[in-house]
């Protein structure tokens, strides 16, 4: 089912959490809301779920205005960052909850509930833990129970708030690949909130970059990464080197270059480059990271392939010519 958000605004006191956001999530897509903390992404997710009411604007589910519909009747599956499992219930009862609270007329029989819950627990690979309490599970297991619980009511949309936020790095990586595979299997329209750009770029079909309550850019991961619409998106999606003081159409502007888009050599090259002193070389890992000091004590970060590094072998203290292969210019904000 598609989700459409139209001109949504939400303020808490003086703080504007969501500032006129519009976006469309097409049916069956997995979309990431990406942004730093305080960018309004969680508020937006809660507004879509109906846990918060927007001050202005509309939320449409399957083309129908759902702005004032009670969250009970939105058929939205929601996974909380801290799982929010019912602590006094077993894993089985947690997953069964949504089926048990249905009005008597549409409530499945006990056997149907049992079959459905066990099927979901198998889907999240936790059927062997059905009798445990949430407190006895690891973080990753709890998160999967939370997911099974959300799926039990056959939601039309799945919303996940920082689903991997409180897990350690390795579990995080495993779980997000698993979520991607699960999504490919069940094709449920899903939106997840994250502040981790790597996670958003790896998992999502489409990334919505948010900043200060506004949408900066919406697009497929590669497009957002390769063609950032604003300086903020450029800076948020990876390391950047900033060249100040250039003038574009008479206005002050800055040029942004990613570390892997800089070339270094011992001889002065063409236009637009500068001399800089090598301050640090870090050769561990798939790329060699160089830190150089340029004009006016500005720091430059350069990523070299191991081959290039082996050919050049830069030494600390040496002066090198740094030249951008590609740069993006954004006018100064404000």
């Amino acid at each position: 089912m598609s989700i459409e958000v139209k001109g949504v605004r939400k303020r808490y006191g003086d703080f504007v959490a969501v500032d006129g956001v519009s976006l469309v999530v097409p049916d069956g897509e997995l979309v990431a809301l990406l942004g730093p903390s305080g960018s309004g992404k969680t508020s937006l997710l809660r507004i879509i779920a109906g846990l918060e009411a927007p001050d202005e604007g509309q939320v449409l589910l399957e083309g129908e205005d759902a702005t004032t519909r009670d969250p009970r009747h939105r058929r939205v599956g929601f996974v909380f960052q801290h799982y929010a499992l019912f602590r006094h219930m077993s894993v089985f009862e947690n997953v069964a909850f949504g089926l048990r609270v249905r009005p008597r007329a549409s409530r499945p029989s006990e056997e149907e509930i049992r079959a459905r819950v066990m099927e979901l627990l198998k889907l999240v690979q936790l059927d062997w833990l059905a009798g445990r309490r949430p407190a006895e599970l690891s973080g990753g297991q709890r998160q999967r129970v939370a997911l099974a619980r959300a799926l039990a009511v056959q939601p039309r949309v799945l919303l996940l708030d920082e689903p991997f936020g409180s897990l350690d790095a390795q579990v995080r990586q495993e779980l997000r690949r698993w979520l991607r595979r699960l999504h490919d299997e069940i094709r449920l329209t899903s939106v997840f909130v994250t502040h981790d750009q790597e996670e958003a770029l790896e998992v999502a079909d489409r990334v919505v970059v948010m900043n200060r309550g506004r949408v900066e850019q919406i697009g497929p991961p590669q497009e957002v990464f390769d063609h950032p619409a604003t300086a903020f998106v450029m800076g948020f999606l990876g390391h950047v080197n900033i060249f100040h003081g250039r003038v574009e159409a008479g206005r002050p502007a800055r040029a942004y270059v990613r570390p892997h888009e800089l070339d270094v050599s011992r001889a002065a090259g063409g236009d637009g480059g500068m001399w800089a002193t090598v301050r640090h070389v870090s050769a561990a890992g798939p790329v060699v990271k160089l830190e150089l000091e340029g004009e006016g004590a500005s720091v430059l970060r350069v990523d070299l392939s191991p081959e290039r590094h082996a050919a050049l072998l830069p030494r600390v203290g040496e002066r090198l010519y740094v030249q951008p292969r590609r740069l993006r210019v954004f006018a100064d904000e404000g």
Binding site: A49, G50, L51, D70, P71, R72, H73, R74, V76, G77, F78, F80, H82, A84, L85, F86, R87, F97, G98, V101, R102, R149, A150, A152, V153
Partner: peptide, 12 residues
Amino acid sequence: EEEEAARLLGAG
């Protein structure tokens, strides 16, 4: 959050 979860699962 547990109450919000219950509500989203359809509980009154």
